[in-house]
Amino acid sequence: MNLIKKYNYIFFAIISLTVLLTSCSQDEVKVVTPAEEVTNLKLQKLQEFTRGDYTFYVYKKDTGNLVVGYNEVYIQLKNNKSGNYVENATLSWKPLMHMASMSHACPYSSIQKVSDTKTLYKGYFIFIMASDDTEYWEITYDYTSGNDTIVEVASRLTVNSATGRVRYKSFKGTDNVSYFLAMVEPAAPRVGTNDITAYLYKKVDMLTFNPVENYTVEIDPRMPDMDNHTSPNNVNLAYDAASGLYKGKLNLTMTGYWQVNLIVRNAGNAILKGDSITATTPASSIYFGIEF
């Protein structure tokens, strides 16, 4: 019995040591510079432009252009006169696609301060088409601050077609409404349980895209390479009012290519789009792709 106790002690010792080592966070107060705030979040600069006394810095999380689908965009605003970054800016933006004969917007969010930073702001766009030489996306920024207010700072952006697996899907529902579904998470999928989140918007008119509330996005992850092997205990995406996101749980039993088949149901539980997987229906008409 002593021996058993001895081993228990050793394990407790190891466990408590691990807890100690991992929980010893650094309490020192350190001033984080605006540049460090950018590097801390591993942001890459997309563009910068100056209007009046202010310079807009636009960032995103990875290199390359914006793509069709969900894009998180970060902003810093610098007052060139004082040399300081604005810490409490009231910022807004509007996307617009300029086509030869018409123009339209896309789903997008308002701009929020990034928590735990002083100078960073962020929001997202769900671009619904790519730009080219003649058709381009333009973002118009407004900065409201008393006499310093500047409006309609327009900046063109290149939006490429998405490469890789499908993370965004637009479809016309059985209610004849156009819907736009964009996956946010998992950004870095792993074997095991992943959070899966997505935004769902519908088109009201060419310039108005509204979030859809209280629908359900059912998921059925499959591996086409493995005879449509699936994983257990997945949780369908349900609307989370606080974040505006649809949230669920996605289980992945191994690495490789997963096709996450989708069924979108409205608040009345009627199917708007998507198919159940059966022996004769190996894939739904709408799905996300995840590969890692």
Binding site: L3, I4, Y7, V191, M223, D225, M226, T253, M254, T255, G256, Y257, E291, F292
Partner: peptide
């Protein structure tokens, strides 16, 4: 590690014995 027929798809990997450790002590 499984190699899919579609070579464009990534390899599939899983642990079948996920680094199982056993300590046993007895009298």
């Amino acid at each position: 590690t499984m190699y899919p027929k579609d070579v464009a798809d990534k390899q599939m990997f899983m642990y079948t014995w996920p680094d199982v450790r056993t300590l046993n002590s007895g009298i």
